[in-house]
Write a protein that binds this DNA or RNA. Structure first.
Ligand SMILES: [Mn+2]
Ligand SMILES: [Mn+2]
Ligand SMILES: [Mn+2]
Ligand SMILES: [Mn+2]
Lengths: 240, 240
DNA sequence: TCAGTAAGTTTGACGAGTCAAACTTTGGGG
DNA sequence: CCCCAAAGTTTGACTCGTCAAACTTACTGA
């Protein structure tokens, strides 16, 4: 039986592994546990065939483990969509709620929810939702601080789940779907200067710019409508 | 911290205590655990001030324990309403789903859900929903096998959660809100003969009649509209 | 009245999940 | 090349929730 705890470990390995090696220390930090605890748990999961855990090496998911991790991730993100759309929660707060509900949702209910939402492909933060068959689309977006001066781009996702961070991002219009123009690209520690939508240009610090992902837009002068999701969120957050 | 396990114990004590003494054996049966396990758990909960557990006596809830039990029950029943109304699950199946979700719902989400549903006072089985302040209305309904011949009544609730049982009840029209006339009252083991709605009279066995609760209707000839809940359920179950 | 049975308790054991603290390995800077 | 801090592991202990099996108490009905 896969407990809530096990699901959380697997999900953590999956998400951390998208940004480099997954060490015990990193996992321990993510899960807010001690290193010793993580070492022993990781060894047990390896014995169960869910992880590979070479001694002193980087932890990785087996196909089975990955499958289960993506199942959890799918539940998590579909729940987030649902909480925003039907329950009326703010996108800055849904993460914690989903963190608990993701373990209590039967396949039945999940499927109904998915259908009710029209089979969404992204959650409110712009993160892709794994398919029911366990496939996760790889995003080819880039953090704002890698964009060159003059680039035009569309915000794809806002990484990092803390409400503090998300509120800050939202307050300057950095929401999935928003259009941005880079007035002055990031250099040193000074951050990046942006025009977001039709707002006055603002300077965005490195720590934020690193965590907001965007894709460059090819046809900049062609006026595009913001996506439905972006407009809905705008209303919710009170963006003009 | 109140774990899922503890919540289940408290809820079980609360519901069982409405039908007599709550002994360890009865609790063990309800929770599908051994007597020994229940004894020790019940003693721990007593130490925590949630239960009273006199040696060899009947278990009961302290005010604190009762409060927590009713909170869980409230969550359970609101979730059931939600699953029927928004997710489209059948009333015969919502119980198991709610059994897991009831432990994962934050007060925030619960309140939104409650509002979304228009603050329902009963769940799909007709069971009353405790208020947010922890008050549970006492029902003065009576099982079908206590009704006299000629009595006219309205079904209030169908006790017992097994899908098998609920499907059987539904198949002969015994749903909350349905109108019944007692053609022949229960006697011996023979069950009761009923006219349910406008259907042809049927004989309902004791085991069923004992678990379907009804209230006598004063003005039998005054044609009353079925409650909204009853009609919704009728559609779902395919009742004419 | 008292024997048999149902109800309740105790005991000893276990797996999951966790921590603190001591210990070992690894890898990069001097 | 070597040292040492960071990363990883081990050890010993603890709580929670559970079981099986032996034991004790209470009640019922003959
Ligand atoms: Mn979680
Ligand atoms: Mn998300
Ligand atoms: Mn439950
Ligand atoms: Mn119910």
């Amino acid at each position: 039986m896969v407990t809530e705890t096990v699901e959380n470990y697997l999900k953590a390995v999956e998400t951390l592994s998208r940004q480099g090696e997954v060490g015990v220390a990193r996992l321990a930090q993510e899960l807010r546990l001690t290193k010793g605890t993580v070492t022993s748990m990781v060894q047990r999961l390896a014995r169960r065939g869910l992880l590979r855990a070479p001694r002193y090496g980087s932890v990785s998911l087996t196909p089975l483990g990955r499958r289960k991790a993506l199942d959890v991730l799918r539940r998590h993100r579909i729940i987030e969509c649902f909480l925003v759309r039907y329950i009326g929660l703010d996108w800055t707060e849904v993460h914690v709620e989903a963190e608990r509900l993701e373990h209590a949702l039967s396949p039945r209910v999940l499927n109904r929810l998915d259908a009710l939402l029209g089979h969404p492909s992204r959650d409110p933060h712009g993160d892709p939702i794994p398919t029911a068959r366990g496939h996760l689309r790889v995003a080819k977006d880039v953090p704002l601080d890698r964009l060159a001066t003059g680039a035009r781009a569309r915000i794809e996702r806002v990484m990092h789940q803390s409400p503090r961070f998300l509120r800050t991002a939202a307050s300057c219009g950095l929401l999935p779907g928003a259009a941005v123009v880079v007035m002055q690209s990031a250099s040193g520690a000074s951050g990046v200067q942006l025009r977001i939508g039709r707002r006055a240009p603002v300077r965005v610090g490195r720590s934020i710019a690193q965590r907001v992902m965007a894709v460059e837009v090819e046809q900049p002068r062609l006026r595009r409508r913001a996506s439905r999701a972006a407009r809905a969120t705008d209303r919710k957050v009170g963006v003009a």
